[in-house]
Amino acid sequence: MIDTSVEIAGVTLPNPVLPASGTYEVDEVHAGFFSPSELGAVINKTIFMNPRPGNPPPRIWETPCGMLNAIGIPSEGLERFLADQLPRLRSLGPPVILSIAGNSLQEWQDLAAAVDRTGSVDMVELDLSCPNLEEGFIWAADEAALSRVVASVVKVTRLPVISKLSPNVRDISEMAVVAERAGTAAVSMVNSYQGMAIDIGTRKPILGNITGGLTGPAIRPLAIHGVFTTFKKITVPIIGMGGIATWQDAVEFLLAGATAVAVGTQNFVNPLTMKEVIEGIAGYVEEAGFSSVRDIIGLAQE
């Protein structure tokens, strides 16, 4: 048996596969697919301080080898999330990553402090990069804003902080360096690429939010490039994501330098994907004659 565990900021993940935030609920509807206790980590759909309804429909649109979404992160707000959802996430077994997003520096700090106080969370992920919010601001696309949020959150929590980075920048690896300097313990990359679609009949944008985020296999080569170029520049671990549809895709991210991988859009297509990816990575590592998944991280760099 090979060792499938990996470590992110002192937290041991039993395997390197987790859902991308907001793409897989661990609720009753999903009980017939596979046990979430088999995941490397569990994560919530990004939580805001206050309840939000999300964007008006249409919210999604299929594109070649992918999809656009402009969901707008509907959320029940922090208080209800902590009461209703967190205990269930905690009870599943794997490490719990809590994805949060603030609308101001103060809110980022208040959210992180509140999450820390629960004592039920292993890591906190800062969703600095959703491109679909009506506020229209991508924190992770602005060096100063990114730096300020990460630094101020790190001050108010002992939990390891993961910064989820946006690919909608000139050079994502430089943004990873900014996040590391500000004290992030890991980076997640990449969030979705800004995109849009236009209905040639009505001559209007299709999405209710006008613009959306592109995900799915269409973006995978871009995401791999992001991980590969970032790996050389930072010392903190990378959680790689962007269009993973198969275990082979996930292996590609590990070889590029990701310590763990997240599956997003493909969960919509095949709800067993993450289980298949976990098994496929282990099989690949064993077949290649390594004893641990850790042995293949960044191999493509050499």
Partner: peptide, 17 residues
């Protein structure tokens, strides 16, 4: 009907007011 990616509450695509 609604444009939906997953059918099981994950994608939040098929919103109706």
């Amino acid at each position: 009907e609604g444009l939906m990616a997953c059918g099981m509450g994950d994608c939040h695509g098929c919103a109706v007011q």
